[in-house]
Computed example of a mutant assay.
Amino acid sequence: AEQAHRVVASYKPSKFDKKILLWTGRFKTEEEIPLRIPPEMLDKARNKARVKACYIMIGLSIIACFAVIASAKKAAARHESLTSLNLAKKAKWREEAALAAEAKTK
């Protein structure tokens, strides 16, 4: 009776699943992928794809950090800072408010 319940489940992979199986190196070409695969194989491929994607995101984050550092150094060399930009913006707003007040009184 127990043997009847132990049926090997098979899963028909979608196009995206096939791309994951290829990207993770489980199969060399799309023609090698059988029509039905065990769900465990797809789970392992998805986990491997998640890890690869995380490593790619970590690498891109590190590159972005260095780009921000380089940009900040260039801005510092031009004597630009958030404080000076905010002060200039607020001075402009005060000037516009003063001109608007003068226009109302005339």
Rank of each mutant, 00 (worst) to 15 (best):
E32C: 01
A67W: 02
A75F: 10
A77I: 06
L35S: 05
R46I: 01
L21K: 00
A98Q: 07
H79Q: 08
A77E: 14
L21F: 02
A101S: 15
A9I: 08
A67K: 15
E31Q: 07
K48N: 06
M41W: 12
A45E: 01
V68Q: 11
Y11N: 05
W93T: 05
E95Y: 04
I33Q: 00
A72C: 09
A103S: 07
P39K: 01
A100P: 02
P39N: 08
A101K: 13
E2M: 15
A91K: 13
R26S: 12
R36D: 05
R50K: 15
C54R: 05
I33E: 00
Q3P: 06
A9D: 11
L35K: 06
L22V: 01
L22E: 02
A101E: 09
M41P: 02
P39T: 01
A101G: 03
A53Y: 08
A97L: 03
R26Q: 14
I20Y: 01
H79D: 11
S14Y: 02
K44D: 06
P38F: 05
A9R: 05
A77V: 00
A101I: 14
K18S: 05
V8H: 08
R36F: 10
R6E: 05
A98P: 11
R94P: 04
S10H: 05
A70E: 06
A100S: 15
L85I: 11
E102V: 12
D43W: 15
H5Q: 11
V51F: 09
C54D: 15
T24F: 04
V7P: 03
E96V: 04
K52G: 05
G25D: 00
V8Q: 15
P34Y: 02
A1G: 11
D43L: 14
L85T: 13
K19I: 02
R6L: 04
H5F: 13
I62P: 04
V7A: 12
A45R: 00
A45Q: 01
K19V: 08
L82Y: 11
K12Q: 06
P13C: 00
T83P: 04
K19D: 12
A75S: 07
I58S: 02
A91D: 09
A4R: 15
P38S: 14
K106R: 10
S61H: 11
L21H: 00
Y55G: 10
R6M: 13
K28I: 09
L35R: 03
P39Y: 02
A53E: 10
L22Q: 10
Y55E: 15
T83F: 13
K44R: 11
I56H: 08
K19T: 10
I62N: 07
S84I: 00
L99D: 05
L99K: 09
F27Q: 02
P34T: 01
N86K: 14
I69W: 01
W23V: 04
L22I: 11
S71R: 15
C54T: 14
K74N: 08
L22D: 00
K18C: 05
A77G: 06
A76S: 13
S81Y: 04
E96F: 10
E40H: 12
A91F: 06
R6C: 14
A67Y: 07
K19Y: 08
K12M: 09
L85S: 12
S10K: 11
L87Y: 12
L42W: 06
A49R: 09
E30D: 03
K104M: 07
